[in-house]
């Protein structure tokens, strides 16, 4: 106790206290924060059940016939793939109006419910269906070729590492790490939000599978050089050089400066 009292006015005391506080808060949050729910995949199409679910959960914005309103687009022709993507990634229903629907922290609807709604929306007008599993797992894909397709078609918005990028007026291309292959495929197929559509004539199903394979192998390769700093390139690197690099070396210089002969 006495030893502590002597040191409480040490210049480092405030930093140590801050650090302790941060560690305790962080560890507490990590222990208590709600965990992400995982939705199982299944397929059942019960159009009537889907219509009823739609009326209670989606019709406020999209209209009771799904034909749109001033605050939500017309869903005729978007197909089951669009519903599976938007609801399967937690983007719909949107929690609040905004420039863009963010990826949901958790998916509130079960796979069956999503499939029901998708079946009803698909019945409005023909549109892209939920893709075949053959093309949505990375299996059989050529990662090298997928990388070339990705850099030419996707990297200008999503960043070559899939770390995401800024679009105009607060919109953005989300990061692509930790996204299911099926959702990547559906996004290309339906062009959600600001994204253009890459239909099967632009990028064939095999090529889409290559892109998914590339993203998966990139995920698996990790960052061989150490911490990736968000894969955001030179800006965070420069920040680290200034804050940690210069900070620590100046600390060393001060220490050396104190050591007189």
């Amino acid at each position: 106790m006495n030893a502590l009292a002597v040191r409480r006015r040490h210049p480092a005391a405030i930093f140590i206290l801050l650090l302790l506080g941060l560690i305790v808060t962080g560890a507490g949050y990590a222990a208590l924060a709600p965990k992400q729910a995982t939705a199982a995949t299944a397929s059942a199409d019960q159009i009537e059940r889907g219509r009823r679910l739609f009326l209670t959960n989606c019709a406020t914005c999209h209209g009771k016939d799904g034909l749109g309103s001033p605050v939500g687009p017309n869903l005729a022709g978007v197909g089951a793939a669009a519903v599976d993507f938007q609801m399967g990634t937690g983007r719909m229903p949107m929690a609040e109006p905004g420039v863009q629907a963010p990826r949901g922290k958790k998916v509130t609807y079960s796979a069956e419910e999503i499939a029901d709604i998708a079946a009803w929306v698909a019945s409005l007008a023909p549109g892209p269906a939920v893709p075949d599993a053959e093309y949505t797992t990375a299996e059989g894909g050529n990662a090298g070729r997928g990388g070339e397709i990705f850099r030419v078609n996707c990297a200008m918005c999503h960043n070559s590492a899939g770390a995401g990028g800024a679009l105009t007026r607060g919109k953005y291309a989300p990061k692509l790490t930790d996204v299911e292959g099926r959702h990547i495929y559906e996004a290309m197929l339906t062009g959600p939000q600001s994204m253009p559509v890459f239909n099967d004539n632009n990028i064939s199903p095999e090529s889409k599978r290559d892109v998914i394979a590339y993203l998966k192998t990139m995920d698996e390769a990790g960052s061989p050089g150490g911490m990736a700093l968000g894969s955001l390139g030179p800006v965070p690197e420069g920040l680290v050089a200034w804050v940690f690099g210069l900070g620590i070396l100046i600390g060393a210089a001060c220490w050396l400066g104190q050591k007189g002969a």
Binding site: A155, P224, E237
Partner: peptide, 28 residues
Amino acid sequence: SAIVQINAIWVYGPYDPSPVTAGSQPDW
């Protein structure tokens, strides 16, 4: 250098005049 990755050239891919990546910045 042992703990923080810098200039991950393998992530950027080979140069080709047609593509460009989001977040293209020079060094600080």
